[in-house]
Simulated scan of single mutants.
Amino acid sequence: MTLVKFNPEKKNSALLPGFNDIFESVLGDTYFSDRRISSLPAVNISESSEEYQIELAAPGLKKEDFKVSVEGETLTVSTEQRSENSVAEKNYNRREFSYSSFTRVFTLPESADVDRILASYCDGVLKLTLPKKEEAKAVSRQIAIS
């Protein structure tokens, strides 16, 4: 008996072998994959004894482009940009549209104080500081050994 490994990623049609490979080679190209990845900014999340900090890398934007909101236990960061360029020369008319947007949603821990969240945007990085509630802050004390 021979065992054949099943690969769910590779779905070839018996009638058109290699047909899906053509699309995979085009859509899997680095140009397309880079465009898909770049639509969502990278995020760093850190925690200290006093606060949580979220850093979102979004170069080329202005602080007015961001919309930051808190609803219940979720923090939402989003942006939307639209631009339109129009050039009319001789008998040619060209219009180019550009549209980009993203939305990141974070579930907030119960220990975060949502009333004191601070946001700043500097050098292409949006920094969100979420202070911890007083009762959630870690209390440290020295324990004597007897």
Rank of each mutant, 00 (worst) to 15 (best):
M1S: 15
T2N: 12
L3Y: 14
K5H: 12
K5L: 10
F6Y: 13
F6P: 06
P8N: 07
A14R: 11
L16P: 00
P17W: 00
P17N: 03
G18A: 02
F19M: 07
N20K: 03
D21R: 03
D21N: 06
F23R: 06
D29T: 06
T30E: 08
F32H: 05
F32P: 03
S33I: 08
I37P: 01
S38I: 05
L40P: 01
L40I: 13
P41E: 03
N44Q: 14
I45M: 10
S46M: 09
S46L: 03
S46H: 09
E47A: 11
E47M: 12
S49D: 09
E51W: 05
Y52M: 04
Y52A: 02
Q53A: 07
I54A: 00
I54Y: 00
E55L: 04
L61R: 01
K62E: 12
K63T: 10
E64F: 04
F66E: 01
K67Q: 07
K67C: 09
K67N: 09
V68R: 01
S69D: 11
S69C: 08
E73T: 13
E80H: 12
Q81A: 10
R82A: 14
S83M: 11
N85V: 08
K90M: 12
N93K: 15
R94F: 11
R95T: 10
F97H: 10
S98C: 08
S101D: 08
R104D: 06
R104W: 05
R104Y: 07
V105C: 01
F106D: 02
F106Q: 03
T107W: 06
P109V: 12
S111A: 14
S111H: 11
A112L: 02
D113Q: 01
R116E: 13
L118A: 15
L118G: 12
A119T: 10
A119P: 01
A119L: 05
A119H: 10
S120P: 05
Y121D: 02
L126R: 00
K127E: 08
K132M: 04
K132N: 07
K132Y: 02
E135W: 08
E135L: 06
A136K: 01
A136G: 03
S140C: 13
R141V: 08
R141M: 11
Q142H: 11
I143K: 09
I143D: 06
S146C: 08
S146L: 13
